Amino acid sequence: MYFKSRKEPFLFIFLYAITLVLLGSSVTDIITGNGWSHIGVHIIVFLSSGFVLWILHHTGYLLTDRSFRYHCGPISGEIALERVGEIVVGKTMYVGLKPALARKGLIIKYDKYNDIYISPESNEEFIGEVLKRNDTIKITRISSSR
């Protein structure tokens, strides 16, 4: 089953705005003829913008019978469900592997010391599907005290 990543509206709008401003200024510079002397900068802007748009539109998670696959633009990986020990719900992880576009997602702890942060559109639906495949995974819910 495929799950899209939930998108934090502020982050989505902010990254799109910056990308459009940079692309717009580069294109305007090239069209007016002033930009050819800075073509290296424009190439970097186009490649960076493509990378950001790729991440914004192609971040998601595939849950199969035996594994969990994630992709965030060019970054992807796979974790066998038998390696997952715990899923923490409602907490945001700021350091580490984070193929996600929103806060208050899921921290998947696997092996002894590894974890990954994801933000599916529905945390509860994702957890339900995971537990159908491996009901030994511990679910820890962090309540919001604010």
Rank of each mutant, 00 (worst) to 15 (best):
S25E: 14
S25C: 11
S26A: 05
V27C: 08
T28P: 01
D29L: 08
G33Q: 05
G33M: 12
N34I: 11
G35S: 10
G35N: 07
G35I: 08
W36A: 10
W36S: 11
S37E: 15
G40L: 12
G40Y: 11
G40F: 12
I44W: 04
F46P: 10
F46H: 04
L47T: 12
S48G: 12
S48Y: 01
S49E: 11
S49Q: 05
G50E: 12
F51I: 15
F51E: 01
V52S: 05
V52F: 02
V52P: 01
L53P: 04
L53K: 01
L53S: 07
W54R: 00
W54I: 01
W54H: 09
W54G: 03
W54M: 01
L56V: 03
L56S: 09
H57V: 01
H57F: 15
H58N: 14
G60W: 03
L62Y: 14
L62F: 15
L62W: 12
T64W: 12
T64P: 04
T64S: 15
D65P: 02
R66V: 09
F68R: 06
F68S: 04
F68T: 01
R69G: 07
Y70D: 04
H71E: 12
G73V: 07
P74R: 00
I75F: 10
I75G: 00
S76W: 13
S76K: 13
